[in-house]
Nucleic acid binder design. Sequence first.
DNA 1: CCTATCATGTAATCCGTTACATGATTAT
DNA 2: ATAATCATGTAACGGATTACATGATAGG
Lengths: 186, 186
Amino acid sequence: MVTDPPVKLTPVSYVVLGLLAQDGPSTPYELKAAVGRSIGNFWSFPHTQLYTEPERLAAAGLVREKQEATGRRRRTFTITAAGRRALQAWLGEPASFSRELRDLGLLKLFFGGLVDPEAVRALAAEQEKAHLRKLEDFEALEREGRTDGDAHRRSVLRMGLLYERAAARFWAEVAAGALPEPDVER
Amino acid sequence: MVTDPPVKLTPVSYVVLGLLAQDGPSTPYELKAAVGRSIGNFWSFPHTQLYTEPERLAAAGLVREKQEATGRRRRTFTITAAGRRALQAWLGEPASFSRELRDLGLLKLFFGGLVDPEAVRALAAEQEKAHLRKLEDFEALEREGRTDGDAHRRSVLRMGLLYERAAARFWAEVAAGALPEPDVER
DNA sequence: CCTATCATGTAATCCGTTACATGATTAT
DNA sequence: ATAATCATGTAACGGATTACATGATAGG
């Protein structure tokens, strides 16, 4: 049994491994589509990574690559037994606490003291609208059942929905209050 | 007027510029502390960036560096007029929609179909607890008023609080339902 | 046929992260 | 004094992003 060179497995690695495990052999383009429909909604990365990452994983023996000999010469990637082991190992260990809310709107709000109140209000209005739009997307997805995947996948979309709902309400408050004094008697 | 080499300004750049603008001249360590107390709660990055990023900004003429001649030889960074202009320009333009929920727990849940239900329940329990803990932190901060900064800074912490609350509830549902069938008659 | 867009990548760059390290300060 | 931890960095690496590019397919 040959030992492949070790690679650091990143979240993207597990996205690829997981999708290959759940959906079966896929081309990068199919991965891209699957991501866009699901994870991409709350954890995005450029499509190029879905071309390069499987390559990395192939070098590590965690996926196998097969390329069409003709036409588009598509590359189809398949998860290997070693890949499944790595994925299961990761899924098995505790996730601990690791979440980032990387929101440029919030970042700007954080520095709201540096601009005039009108600008803050504009920001809040814009953000509220954006989150409402996203919220509607999610609600439509849920309603129409146009979500693919199992219950867990849908569950994740639901968390996205809950977040958008909270965010929209939050920004509405900011837009209304402009300067939200904390619990001053209104 | 000399034109400095252009640099790409990243979110971290604006964090540094913003903190220097709001809190005045600071050392990297002070920046680190300020971040840890506030933004770090929802957008974290390693302390080393708060040493290297001001350097980059200095090279671009957006901040000025002054170093102690003795002792620790601390470096203190001050925002320049050009720096303020860059910051204001960024604050002025629309933030559009850009938010990432990079949560490893959610990622694992997404692939919950690949493990046994018991593992999912364990994940959910663990995550709920973690979010509750964080929630308590935020609530304590809000209650005790130990938050520093102006209303906007506190406002951002409040969004963090809302998120943790939603997340905790979400994970509780997942832990209870294990397999959340969407809107099956309970 | 021509045009749009779909599909599929390569290459270069660089920011973010990890690993490492050491002098100053404070506590015991 | 000594240990602990506070404070302050440097250097290297590589994954993530950006920019660019081109062949296939479908629609008009």
